[in-house]
Amino acid sequence: MTDSVLIEQLAVEAIIGVFDWEREVHQRLLLDLEMAWANDRPAATDDLALALDYAAVCEAVTEWFHHHQPQLLETAAEAVAAELMQRFGIRWLAVTIRKPGVLPRAGSVGIRIERGQR
Rank of each mutant, 00 (worst) to 15 (best):
A36V: 10
A77Q: 11
E63F: 04
A14N: 07
T62W: 08
D20Q: 14
G101T: 11
A49Y: 05
L72H: 14
A60D: 05
L48Y: 09
L50Y: 00
E13R: 11
G107D: 15
P104S: 15
V12G: 02
R105E: 15
V95R: 01
W37P: 08
I97C: 06
L6P: 04
Q9W: 01
W37A: 13
H67I: 01
R105N: 11
R118T: 14
V61D: 12
W64T: 12
D40V: 12
V12M: 02
L50K: 08
E13N: 07
L103W: 08
R91G: 04
T96S: 15
G17L: 09
R23F: 00
T2C: 04
V102C: 02
I97V: 14
R91I: 08
T45A: 12
D32L: 11
Y54I: 10
E24L: 13
E22A: 07
T2Y: 08
T45R: 03
R118L: 11
D20L: 13
Q9L: 03
A55P: 03
E24G: 05
G101Q: 09
F65T: 05
A43H: 09
V57Q: 04
L52A: 15
H26I: 01
L29F: 11
M35E: 10
E114G: 13
A36L: 06
V80M: 03
L30H: 13
H68W: 06
E34S: 12
D46M: 05
I15C: 14
T45D: 07
L30D: 07
M1W: 05
F19Q: 15
A44Y: 03
A49N: 08
R41K: 13
L33P: 10
R41L: 15
D47Q: 11
W21E: 13
R41H: 11
L31P: 06
E22F: 04
I111A: 02
L30T: 10
L73H: 10
T75N: 11
V57T: 14
R98D: 00
D53N: 15
M1V: 10
T2H: 09
W21I: 02
E8D: 08
A51P: 07
T45C: 12
S108E: 08
R115H: 11
F88K: 05
L84P: 08
A36Q: 14
A76T: 08
L48V: 15
E114C: 13
T62L: 03
E34Y: 01
W92Y: 10
T2P: 07
A11R: 11
R118Q: 13
L72V: 09
R98T: 02
G116H: 03
V61E: 03
V80G: 06
Y54V: 11
Q71E: 14
Q71H: 14
V95K: 01
G110A: 03
H67P: 00
R115G: 13
W37F: 10
D53F: 04
I113R: 03
Q69L: 00
E22T: 04
C58Q: 15
R23S: 07
V12F: 01
